[in-house]
Measured scan of single mutants.
Amino acid sequence: NKASVVANQLIPINTALTLIMMKAEVVTPMGIPAEEIPKLVGMQVNRAVPLGTTLMPDKVKNYE
């Protein structure tokens, strides 16, 4: 099972992601793969992401 990116804290809307905000966890359904964490640093979320929520591609601005 592959790990996904999960919010390590509440991430407010329009916040630029940092390493400390994210952790890798095996979750269902799968979100953004954990190996993409370095790519996500500096990207902004387009909505608030509660603690423990899986980061889905549609929650990150300009994620492809």
Rank of each mutant, 00 (worst) to 15 (best):
N1G: 14
N1P: 13
N1M: 15
K2E: 10
K2W: 13
K2L: 12
A3C: 12
A3Y: 10
S4C: 06
S4P: 05
S4F: 03
V5D: 00
V5A: 08
V6P: 03
V6C: 07
V6Q: 02
V6F: 04
V6L: 05
V6N: 01
V6A: 02
V6I: 12
A7R: 00
A7V: 06
A7Y: 04
N8E: 03
N8L: 08
N8C: 12
Q9M: 13
Q9T: 11
Q9D: 05
Q9I: 12
L10S: 12
L10N: 15
I11E: 01
I11Q: 01
I11D: 01
I11S: 01
I11P: 01
P12D: 07
P12C: 09
P12V: 07
I13M: 12
I13L: 09
N14K: 06
T15R: 00
T15S: 09
T15L: 05
A16E: 11
A16V: 14
L17G: 02
T18V: 07
T18I: 08
L19H: 08
L19P: 08
L19V: 09
L19R: 11
I20Y: 12
M21N: 10
M21D: 05
M22W: 04
M22F: 07
K23Y: 08
K23T: 09
K23V: 11
A24G: 10
A24C: 08
A24T: 07
E25P: 02
V26W: 12
V26G: 04
V26L: 11
V27H: 03
V27D: 01
V27K: 06
V27N: 00
T28R: 11
T28G: 03
T28M: 12
T28C: 15
T28H: 14
P29R: 00
P29W: 07
P29T: 05
P29E: 06
P29A: 03
M30P: 14
M30C: 15
G31F: 02
G31P: 00
G31Q: 06
G31K: 00
G31D: 01
I32W: 03
I32V: 05
I32Q: 01
I32P: 02
P33W: 08
P33T: 05
P33Q: 06
A34D: 04
A34N: 01
A34S: 09
A34F: 06
E35A: 12
E35S: 14
E35D: 14
E35I: 13
E35W: 14
E36M: 14
E36P: 01
E36K: 12
E36R: 09
P38R: 09
P38E: 10
P38S: 10
K39N: 13
K39F: 13
K39H: 13
K39G: 09
L40D: 04
V41D: 00
G42T: 02
G42W: 05
G42F: 09
G42V: 08
M43A: 05
M43W: 02
Q44A: 08
Q44Y: 15
Q44C: 13
Q44S: 10
Q44G: 04
Q44H: 11
Q44L: 11
V45T: 09
V45I: 05
V45F: 00
V45E: 05
N46E: 07
R47I: 15
R47Y: 12
R47A: 15
A48S: 11
A48H: 11
A48N: 14
A48D: 15
A48Q: 12
V49S: 03
V49K: 01
V49E: 07
V49I: 15
P50L: 09
L51H: 14
G52Q: 00
G52E: 01
G52H: 04
G52T: 02
G52R: 01
G52F: 02
T53Q: 14
T54V: 10
T54H: 02
T54G: 04
M56R: 06
M56L: 09
M56Q: 09
M56V: 06
M56F: 12
P57W: 13
P57A: 10
P57I: 01
D58S: 10
D58E: 10
D58G: 08
K59D: 15
K59F: 15
V60G: 00
V60P: 00
V60Y: 00
V60W: 00
K61D: 08
K61V: 14
K61C: 11
K61Q: 10
N62I: 03
N62M: 09
N62R: 08
N62H: 10
Y63P: 04
Y63Q: 02
Y63S: 02
Y63G: 01
Y63F: 07
Y63V: 06
Y63D: 04
E64L: 15
E64V: 15
E64T: 14
E64S: 14
E64H: 14
E64I: 15
